[in-house]
């Protein structure tokens, strides 16, 4: 297993910035698209990255999204400074959301974010400390034709 990074990039995410929310995910998708990553992998990266990014926008003060590409996988790490998650198991349940009525009116807070990330990842880790923040690690394996 070669874990050596071919590419590593970091993007800042500002909490509450709904206007620019999704920018980091778009940049990540574009970088991977230009490298020639397979469309189905790109689709999964886009969904997982967007959901993770919007969670930071909605709930945290700020966050960093890191993209690491290795010969075998795409790793996306999101580390935020925010309220954290009280009950991760509950947060992972489809339909569960703590979004405000305003966010729901904008079409967020369907309780699909974390389940969508998990569904599109080959490996998904989530760690959270209440009052400090949440860290996500999303791993999507590349298939042979990408390398």
């Amino acid at each position: 297993m070669n874990q050596e990074a071919i590419l590593s990039e970091e993007f800042e995410i500002s909490g509450g910035d709904f206007v620019n929310g999704g920018r980091a995910s778009c940049l990540i998708k574009n970088i991977l698209k230009e490298i020639g990553i397979d469309a189905e992998i790109l689709r999964r990266v886009a969904i997982a990255a967007y959901e993770a990014e919007m969670n930071v926008v909605m709930y945290a003060r700020r966050g960093i999204m890191k993209l690491v590409l290795t010969p075998k996988r795409i790793i996306i790490k999101v580390e935020d400074e925010g309220p954290g998650i009280h009950d991760i198991e509950l947060a992972m349940q489809p339909g569960y959301s703590t979004a405000t009525p305003e966010m729901r009116e904008m079409g967020f807070g369907a309780g699909m974010g974390l389940p969508n990330i998990k569904k599109n990842s080959d490996k998904f880790n989530i760690e959270s400390t209440v009052g400090k923040g949440t860290n996500l690690e999303i791993i999507i394996n590349l298939n042979n034709k990408n390398v």
């Binding site: 709904f18 999704g22 778009c26 959901e51 919007m54 079409g107 699909m112």
Partner: peptide, 25 residues
């Protein structure tokens, strides 16, 4: 938006009542 992310397909035309900038992302 999560539903669109999960289920819309490349090249689809998207009908939505949402008018805020995040629909562009």
């Amino acid at each position: 938006l999560s539903d669109v992310m999960a289920n819309a397909k490349k090249g689809n035309i998207w009908v939505t009542l949402q008018t805020h900038p995040n629909i562009v992302a």
